[in-house]
Amino acid sequence: MKLEIGGSETIPASVDALWVALNDPAVLTRCIPGCRSMTEMAPDAYKVEMQLRVAAVGGSFEGEISLHDKEAPKVCGIKVSGAGSLGHGNGTARFEIEPDGEDSKLIYKGTGEIGGLVAGVGQRILSSVSKHLIGRFFTALRKEFEQPVHGAAE
């Protein structure tokens, strides 16, 4: 099934600081819900391992994330694909960072296609689940700047 996401969030960080954070696998590992590990395979290409639960099904998910069309520190394209016991998915997204006073505004938009178990069992709630997961991501991201953690994940 097709899934569309989009929105904007204000993050208490400068444009540059936010850009650095969003390019730091350690930060992303902490912020992406269910993310177990994120390994850099090549410049701007990562392998991720996730453990997720959607509706009646839970399971593991392995995927690849690549960043492209980067215009530091403002614009970035993201390509995601992966598969696991939950199903498979792929999608593309793009975000832009704009200054918003002392803070930054992150505007994002993306589309995805999801198949397998998660599409069948969780389809009625998938869009609300995705909104929830995105919400958790931004909550965690804001926390990164409220209690700055420097360097790599321990």
Binding site: M1, K2, A119
Partner: peptide, 14 residues
């Protein structure tokens, strides 16, 4: 099935 060929009714919820 949805238009992407996924079975939407895989449990007695659906």
């Amino acid at each position: 099935y949805d238009s992407e060929g996924q079975l939407l009714t895989q449990s007695f919820m659906d």
